[in-house]
Simulated scan of single mutants.
Amino acid sequence: MADRDATAPRRRRGRPRGGRTEAREQILAAAATEFGDRGYDGATIRTIAERAGVDSALVHHYFGTKADLFAAAIDIPINPASAIPEVIGTDLDTAGERLVRFVLELWDRPAFRDRGVAMLRSVIGNRRTASLMVGFVSRELIRHIGERIAPGDEGRTRASLVASQVVGLMVTRYVLELEPIASTPVDDLVAAMGPNLQRYLTGPLTPAASA
């Protein structure tokens, strides 16, 4: 009698048994574990797919890029790695105010604010989560935004300064709820902060030499 194990068909990785929802949840669970274990830079679509027991193509099919999958895994409704570079666009001369307005109008939506505040509090209070978020911001935001602004180190420096202002605004207005920033109208904050972000994007980074 032939060995049953030798004649039984091997299960191939691909679409898991069950429906679309089960497949997505299986991938999300694997992604959360993989990002937690390896960090953002160390985790890959391939290793996440292997952990989930599916093909890499299925992960791409459901979630697109690694940045999109990360956004889904941490449960935020928008991927900043694709949204913010689009807001900045190619017209850098007016990007400062556009960026401030985009962030404020997005975070003023109750559904986004609730999840965003929870995420920021987790980052602030947990070293492991903070390290994971730093990897995502550095690779997917600062690098890509920097490439649009200026070449090399200058672009990364400018993008980092922009990120410091945006994160500071989010923490001040939505986590700490520090007045009067917490209740200032969006238009007023755009007018006040837009020029500062614009300087980081396109203006001089060092004071002009005195005559």
Rank of each mutant, 00 (worst) to 15 (best):
130 A>L: 09
158 R>H: 04
182 A>E: 03
190 V>R: 06
6 A>F: 11
173 R>V: 00
43 A>C: 01
211 A>S: 15
176 L>R: 11
167 V>G: 04
128 R>K: 13
54 V>W: 07
102 F>S: 06
203 G>C: 05
38 R>E: 10
131 S>W: 07
80 P>R: 04
80 P>Y: 01
71 A>W: 01
147 E>G: 15
60 H>M: 07
55 D>T: 12
51 R>W: 04
157 T>C: 07
52 A>S: 02
6 A>K: 14
17 R>A: 12
177 E>K: 13
114 D>L: 02
55 D>P: 01
31 A>Y: 05
16 P>A: 08
193 M>R: 15
80 P>G: 02
100 V>E: 10
39 G>S: 10
142 I>A: 10
155 G>A: 11
179 E>R: 11
94 T>M: 05
165 Q>G: 15
174 Y>S: 04
202 T>F: 06
139 R>E: 14
102 F>L: 05
63 F>I: 03
45 I>V: 14
168 G>I: 03
96 G>S: 12
199 R>M: 14
102 F>Q: 05
117 V>S: 02
99 L>S: 13
64 G>Q: 01
157 T>L: 14
194 G>R: 10
113 R>P: 06
63 F>P: 03
68 D>T: 05
87 V>H: 07
8 A>D: 13
37 D>K: 14
187 D>H: 08
131 S>A: 15
103 V>K: 05
108 D>A: 08
186 V>M: 09
76 I>W: 00
25 E>D: 15
47 T>L: 09
170 M>N: 06
92 L>S: 13
51 R>H: 03
11 R>K: 15
38 R>D: 11
178 L>N: 11
45 I>G: 12
81 A>G: 09
24 R>P: 03
130 A>C: 07
71 A>Q: 04
81 A>K: 00
142 I>P: 13
23 A>R: 11
154 E>C: 03
59 V>I: 00
121 R>F: 00
16 P>D: 09
207 P>G: 02
170 M>F: 01
21 T>G: 03
201 L>G: 12
79 N>E: 08
114 D>Q: 02
8 A>P: 02
118 A>Q: 06
146 G>M: 09
97 E>P: 09
179 E>A: 10
104 L>S: 06
72 A>V: 02
81 A>E: 00
167 V>F: 11
83 A>I: 00
205 L>K: 09
164 S>Q: 08
129 T>Q: 06
115 R>Q: 07
98 R>L: 11
116 G>I: 01
61 H>K: 06
211 A>T: 12
50 E>S: 06
174 Y>M: 03
133 M>A: 06
63 F>Q: 05
163 A>Y: 10
202 T>Y: 03
153 D>Y: 07
209 A>D: 10
139 R>Q: 14
189 L>C: 09
133 M>Q: 12
177 E>W: 00
192 A>N: 12
200 Y>F: 14
71 A>F: 01
183 S>V: 10
194 G>F: 07
116 G>K: 02
10 R>V: 09
96 G>F: 13
181 I>T: 15
62 Y>N: 05
141 L>I: 13
177 E>G: 01
110 P>Y: 04
172 T>I: 02
144 H>E: 15
86 E>R: 12
188 D>Q: 15
82 S>T: 15
107 W>L: 09
12 R>F: 08
133 M>N: 09
174 Y>I: 04
29 A>L: 06
58 L>S: 09
17 R>Q: 11
205 L>F: 02
118 A>C: 03
200 Y>P: 01
188 D>V: 14
87 V>Y: 05
